[in-house]
Design a protein around this nucleic acid. Structure first.
Lengths: 208, 208
DNA sequence: ACCGGGGTGTTACCACCGGTAACATCGTCG
DNA sequence: CGACGATGTTACCGGTGGTAACACCCCGGT
């Protein structure tokens, strides 16, 4: 893999304009930012999807590798889970604007950049699945449970990280604890609150 | 709220064509399906976003109400959780193409319909948060944990339901069990597999 | 009886987008 | 020198979201 410097340069320009104008940036605008015109972009990336794919791969690559490494760390299970969680949160914390760009394509976005990071999520889910299936004794349902949980945990961490990054309700370590506690069944194990159950809700009107 | 029958009729048409042609359906196509032309659509919905918003509200309304009701059911905690999970999965199972439209705006989609269901997810997350905070004894961190977990569980179920709906790896009840088991800490409680730990992975090349 | 207005509908048009064809330019290698 | 590949351009295509202007039709008020 040679460095391909022109391509890198074009990606830099695309990065700049996409951060300035949002994910709906047009090919024309990107080309202009790079000081050139459209057809060169198309020669390099095929079509618009190719461009955003290249952009996202570039941005998700580091995070993906970090999570992979964290998953392979030789720790006790809870420690490893916390390590992975912390790695992920640290990763999105480091580049919040990029993360938001990938996950929250602005309203009025002409191209769904949101699902461009779907491959990365898919990969993370597969890594988790593999880790579970290879390392945890789950009986006959091993394969099924591992894959279901891989997807579930990925989605859980995605949503949780998203919320945490937007509203910053607590420190990173605290958030890691909250997530690990959830996976460790703390919600299930906690006691009921005394009389708070069913205090006659306000009967929300339901249409259809 | 009068019924506004014409609007309903237009939404029906939009629904039909969007299920036939995917989420990238053009306003022209929708208008043609309704037997009319574009400007009428714009008079009724303002712009394309207004149309998809109306569509999503219409489709998510029932599911939202169902989940709300399931959350309020007077059952033991595990039973209630399973009930909510089953309700959600049944809801998306009933209209899979609509669900896909909402969650997976096709590549080449001119308008990101994906975030149109964000409000519904937000609402679900808030309901779960409220349920947890009101009913479970979590100590001083109650508020924080409830909200973090509300978001987390919403994301988890979203991702899990998505995967389940796409690949249908098992029955609905089995999937409900898998998710409830995860929340109940079965992953954390399971034993390690004997020697499977760290058998020298094939060292995936990592760029950057 | 007449007029006016709101809903329904149309044609024609705009700016812009993604994408492509055809042509020009420059450095480099044989 | 000549061929070639990369870099660049202008000009264009079909289609998209969105809008203006005009036509009809029915119903209610004076």
């Amino acid at each position: 893999m040679e460095p391909e410097p022109r391509r890198e340069q074009l990606l830099n320009a695309a990065d700049r304009v996409v951060q300035r104008e949002g994910p709906g940036a047009s090919m024309n605008a990107i080309a202009a930012e790079a000081g050139i015109t459209k057809p060169i972009l198309y020669r390099h990336f095929g079509d618009r999807n190719g461009l955003v794919r290249a952009l996202t791969e570039r941005h998700t690559g580091g995070l993906l590798a970090a999570v992979r490494a964290a998953l392979a760390e030789p720790l006790e299970r809870r420690d490893r889970v916390e390590h992975v969680l912390d790695t992920y949160l640290a990763g999105i914390e480091a580049r919040p604007q990029v993360y938001r760009l990938l996950t929250h394509p602005e309203p009025g976005d002409p191209s769904g950049a949101g699902n461009a990071l779907a491959p990365a999520l898919q990969q993370i889910a597969e890594e988790i699945t593999r880790a579970i299936a290879d390392q945890v004794d789950l009986g006959a349902d091993r394969e099924l449970l591992a894959e279901a949980w891989g997807r579930s945990i990925t989605g859980m961490v995605l949503a949780a990280g998203d919320w945490w990054l937007e509203s910053r309700p607590c420190s990173r370590t605290r958030m890691v604890q909250a997530l690990a506690d959830l996976l460790w069944g703390r919600l299930a194990a906690a006691a009921d609150l005394p009389t708070a159950a069913l205090p006659t809700g306000p009967a929300p009107e339901q249409t259809g």
